[in-house]
């Protein structure tokens, strides 16, 4: 089960994208979400596809991983495509067979939205495939720093996120173990109606919560014993460094946006 999870799915490597600062990558993906909405015709969507392909090449990630990451959404993409194909009724009819009528606009919209979605899924996958969760946390802490003014506990949040990333594999193992232990005792979580399945979850959650809270307590004691006093004056072991390539990467996005605006209808 655990092997199926591609997350924590960071793949070590030494490509241009791997070397980029995590802050740059986060900002890039954030603004890219908005930029894709500029595209609205064949040329602009074509440009988006080429751009994504270039990024895949630059990240040196094998296509196999990306296709694997797409698998869970293939159904969603096909469903969306069909939805548009059959329900958008604009433009000339291109197929009229018995009760099925397919309009040109429906086909076009279906293709466009599928491209937009695929491109976004691929780019986010590249972000998580080339950046360790810990550097994403660090980057978020720095990017959110200005919010300290509004009393958002940024440092504490980043620490909580690191703690939680550290405990996910442990707790997943534990969930798996308790699930198997309860199944060995005759608990059935995979069959029955919704209510029966939900009830089967109680004997899973109780031991899970008890052990999780015990771990948290131990951790808190350990932190206090070691003299943890919050973020003030703390130094860092891992440092993020902004380089010229990061600025250039963000500029590429501006150029892409300008090109898309020029070619859109």
């Amino acid at each position: 089960m655990l092997e199926k999870m591609i997350f924590g799915r960071y793949i070590p490597g030494d490509s241009f994208i791997h070397r980029l600062d995590a802050r740059a990558k986060l900002l890039f993906v954030f603004f890219f979400i908005m930029v894709v909405f500029i595209a609205n015709n064949w040329i602009t969507y074509g440009i988006l596809l080429v751009f994504t392909f270039l990024i895949i090449k630059l990240s040196k990630i094998r296509l196999y991983f990306l296709i694997n990451g797409l698998k869970p959404v293939v159904f969603l993409i096909i469903f969306t495509f069909l939805l548009h194909l059959f329900f958008t009724r604009e433009g000339p009819i291109i197929l009229d067979w018995k009760f099925i009528k397919i309009y040109e606009e429906g086909l076009k919209q279906g293709i466009f939205i599928s491209i937009r979605f695929t491109v976004l899924v691929i780019l986010t996958s590249i972000l998580t495939l080339t950046t360790t969760p810990i550097s994403i946390t660090d980057a978020l802490e720095i990017l959110l720093n200005p919010l300290k003014k509004w009393k958002l506990p940024v440092h504490e949040l980043a620490l909580m996120m690191s703690i939680s990333l550290r405990f996910i594999p442990t707790l997943m193992d534990e969930t798996d173990k308790i699930m198997k232990a309860q199944m060995a005792r005759g608990s059935d979580m995979t069959t029955g109606n919704m209510k029966e399945r939900m009830n089967a979850i109680v004997p899973l959650l109780i031991p899970l919560f008890v052990s999780a809270f015990k771990r948290a307590e131990d951790l808190a004691t350990a932190m206090e014993v070691r003299g943890y006093r919050g973020g003030e004056g703390r130094t860092r072991y891992r440092k993020l460094e902004w380089a010229l390539r990061d600025t250039l990467t963000l500029l590429t996005l501006v150029v892409l946006a300008v090109i898309l605006v020029y070619f859109r209808n």
Binding site: I163, S164, L171, A212, L219, A220, M223
Partner: peptide, 10 residues
């Protein structure tokens, strides 16, 4: 802080 981190992980 510790409990929050663990709840999130859970």
């Amino acid at each position: 802080i510790a409990v929050t981190g663990v709840i999130a992980a859970l």
